[in-house]
């Protein structure tokens, strides 16, 4: 554990809590991609199956359980509790175009051809693209509420901090995980355009982020 890793995890947690509270308090999931949230729930489910097979630390176990619970609670709010506020027409990204290649790649490029290992690899690859339906939705509607952009900012910051964590671990421990690092770099790149808009539009202005 290093400071980048810890801050990264905290940003990830903050992002998930921001989204959950936004939907819970406003009783609306307008502007939120339910598909991205289902993908994230799938990411956590397939990655954290090792909760049943190996114990790493109390921190690790607690964080995994919290992420899983919040991910499913968010999906529940979007698709069941506040379903009437869900913009299904704008959330039109075809997730099969993500799931099929990601599933195929996880069978081809993994550390061991074992069920848990393939599911872990699948979760790593899927996480790198899971935000695309949300970014697609913002591009399609041309706007996002500022609270939604704060959610995306913390999610992107979490990714950037994990990159710093890997640089740190490489230099201090000689640790290098190519699947996680390559996917992590790809994932972080998706946020770059958003970061630019966030700093130039959201933080300088107020209210919604509108696309040029």
């Amino acid at each position: 554990m290093n400071i980048f890793r810890l801050l990264g995890d905290m940003c990830h947690l903050v992002a998930i809590i921001i989204l959950f509270l936004k939907i819970w308090r406003s009783k609306s999931c307008a502007g939120i991609s339910g598909k991205s949230q289902v993908l994230f729930a799938l990411v956590f489910t397939t990655r954290y199956l090792d909760l049943f097979t190996s114990f790493i630390s109390v921190y690790n176990t607690v964080m995994k359980v919290v992420f899983l619970v919040l991910a499913y609670a968010t999906v529940y709010l979007i698709y069941l509790r506040f379903r009437s506020t869900y913009n299904s027409e704008s959330d039109s990204f075809r997730v099969e175009f993500l799931l099929v290649p990601v599933a195929g790649l996880s069978f081809l490029e993994n550390y061991a051809f074992a069920p848990l290992e393939i599911l872990w690899t699948f979760s790593i690859y899927l996480e790198s693209v899971a935000i695309l339906p949300q970014l697609f939705m913002i591009t399609k509607t041309g706007e996002a509420e500022s609270i939604t952009t704060h959610y995306l900012f913390f999610l992107g910051l979490y990714r950037a901090l994990y990159l710093a964590n890997w640089v740190w671990r490489y230099h201090t421990e000689g640790f290098f995980d190519q699947i996680a690092v390559v996917s992590g770099v790809v994932q972080t790149i998706f946020y770059c355009d958003f970061f630019y808009l966030y700093f130039t539009k959201v933080l300088r202005g107020s209210g919604k982020m509108t696309l040029p």
């Binding site: 995994k64 994990y162 640790f175």
Partner: peptide, 10 residues
């Protein structure tokens, strides 16, 4: 380090 070591990350 083996790939298993990455599993301590979330």
């Amino acid at each position: 380090l083996s790939p298993k070591d990455v599993k301590d990350e979330l």
